[in-house]
Nucleic acid binder design. Structure first.
Lengths: 158, 158
DNA sequence: GAGGTTCTACTCGGATAGTTAGTGTCCGAGTCGCCATGG
DNA sequence: CCATGGCGACTCGGACACTAACTATCCGAGTAGAACCTC
């Protein structure tokens, strides 16, 4: 079980965008420079965040990315699942119904106990991430960090 | 984030071994037949469980696998981490210290807030799986299943 | 009949190829801002 | 000086190679049981 490395990129990128003034944008190239990351590949991840509704993108000069909704309505789970997908890491293939030891279908009306417990664990993980918003992240950063981010990234909106 | 398909194999295999009389064993070939799985690859996973101390293996005729300790002392987490490894899915590469927006090392004495929350979520997941033992799994199975398993797999120990 | 020896078959264990998901890159379509031009 | 048209550069968006991990497989080392032979 491994999350893509780009998950970290997405989390930091969204956190940085949250530090900008509302309406301001930053381009993928700027963010790549800011974090020293491959520009094209970072852009790909930002596109995933747009598809997930976390970010909004404007094209053309002075375009770029910005938060699609207030920072306190964007959770870490939103970002992680935008990058990694929302499918559960454990998938039950009904092994109990295969092979010589296969259980009868009528014995399998309830979902497999093992699968249910794995789903519980996944839901605990999701709940833990859902409880943290980008506003919470922003609140923990020293003000100096926000100032530096704005200087390096911010471009005023129209 | 995806768990290997063989995780399911390991969980069901250990659960089946827990249904046998203490001291009894079942071979990898038997278990593969029982679940209709590739014998050699299943054996590989069972070996991982042996390395993790979940199972014990005996070689030679009438050899095979058995639980290394009582079922109430084997958790689902033990099995999952035996197969998938115990490393966390999210690794912090200190992105905040890279690029033009790099934070000063003295600003980074505390671990990154994002990494800490990701670690919290992972620990919640682990705690959820650690709370379930194979004895719990065994308790939910109908008695008929255990009987069938014993008939198909069990070979008495010395 | 009892004991020792050999042999055989069965077990696990590690080293070796094939296939999917993540990583990285490139180029194209669209759009906004700027500049030159004319009134 | 002001409005307008065209141009140019910058932006995102999707399509194409490369690498690592999971999947699958094979063969070899070791061992316990059984058969056999001898006494």
């Amino acid at each position: 079980m491994k999350l893509p490395e780009s998950t970290e990129w997405a989390l930091h990128a969204v956190a940085s965008l949250a530090q900008l003034e509302p309406g301001s944008t930053a381009s993928a190239a700027q963010l790549a420079e800011y974090f020293d990351l491959p520009p094209a590949y970072l852009a790909k991840q930002l596109q995933s965040l747009v598809r997930a509704g976390v970010l909004a993108a404007n094209t053309g000069p002075r375009g770029g990315f910005r938060l699609a909704r207030p920072a306190d309505q964007v959770t870490m789970l939103d970002i992680v699942e935008a990058i990694d997908g929302s499918s559960a890491p454990y998938v039950c293939r009904e092994l109990r119904q295969q092979g010589t030891g296969a259980a009868a279908p009528e014995e399998c009306r309830e979902t497999c106990f093992l699968a249910a417990r794995m789903a519980d664990a996944h839901e605990a993980w999701r709940a833990s991430l859902r409880a943290v918003t980008i506003a919470d992240v922003h609140a923990t950063l020293p003000p100096a960090v926000g100032d530096r981010t704005r200087v390096l990234l911010e471009r005023p909106g129209r």
